[in-house]
Design a protein around this nucleic acid. Structure first.
Ligand SMILES: [Zn+2]
Ligand SMILES: [Zn+2]
Ligand SMILES: [Zn+2]
Ligand SMILES: [Zn+2]
Lengths: 134, 134
DNA sequence: TGCCTTATTGACATTGATTCTCATAATCAA
DNA sequence: TTGATTATGAGAATCAATGTCAATAAGGCA
């Protein structure tokens, strides 16, 4: 763990969610001048490969990253407005939902001989504001 | 519906899945020379906005598109190898999953005042081959 | 049918996020 | 220290996707 990496990880783990690489880079300049954009990208990819952060692909032209906090309180899925791009983290799973995910993972692992490591579930639609404007 | 649009839609609806814009463009050149790459992109975005094709963001640097065939036999979710990128469409555990998706949609719609239009569910892991090489 | 308005097309240029390159600097185990 | 190894930062390069714009095509109407 080097200083730039710690700075990035520390920032991600305390910041609000779903930041782009450039947003992270800019935010870090204030407290950590001199850090390079390349390092931000490299570190984010590294942390993603290590399973410490999640890389989100939301179709707005840039990847977004969020710290993957452990435990039930951290894990969540996304509700995304296809018009304005707002992202809502929701954690109100049905017990059934967790059970089903586990069961599906098992079945898929067996049938397709995959080693399943993660899942993404997202719902897309229009948020309260964008609903009105169609 | 113009000729280029029909060509793209016809191609997508009969081709194998998950094609990138450039792959679609190249494939069409054979049967439909003269079609422009811009037109391919414009048409894919149009069809995606119309809900006729699905735009997939898989993190390999380019969007992929698949025809969204109606009915239970068409709708599916994805199992993706994070190492080699292979994508498996799975359709089998559908009844339970569909019920749960509907129930979750209702709950989210009410709580967050969203109008939910679609969902993505994907499982990530290592495929049979990539499992061995870690 | 012929005319006119509007939408679409294709070639090309441009943008912009991400990755690459490479010389310098930090890390770490003897 | 010392030398081998890895990480860094500045800038260049890549390349998917979008924008521009003149030329075409579509579609409505007399
Ligand atoms: Zn919105
Ligand atoms: Zn989130
Ligand atoms: Zn694989
Ligand atoms: Zn598919």
């Amino acid at each position: 763990m080097t200083a730039p990496r710690e700075a990035i990880l520390e920032f991600l783990s305390t910041s609000s969610k779903h930041m782009s690489a450039k947003e992270i880079y800019t935010s870090l300049q204030k407290k950590y001048p001199g850090i390079g954009l390349s390092t931000v990208y490299r570190t984010l990819n590294l942390l993603a490969r290590m399973g410490i952060v999640t890389k989100l692909l939301l179709g707005d032209g840039q990847s977004r990253y969020e710290f993957k906090s452990k435990g039930k309180s951290g894990h969540h899925h996304h509700l995304i407005c296809t018009n304005c791009g707002i992202i809502i983290d929701y954690r109100e799973f049905f017990e059934e939902e967790l059970q089903l995910v586990r069961k599906t993972e098992e079945k898929l692992a067996k049938k397709y001989k995959f080693m399943i490591q993660d899942h993404n579930i997202e719902y897309l639609g229009l948020c309260e504001k964008c609903k009105l404007k169609y």
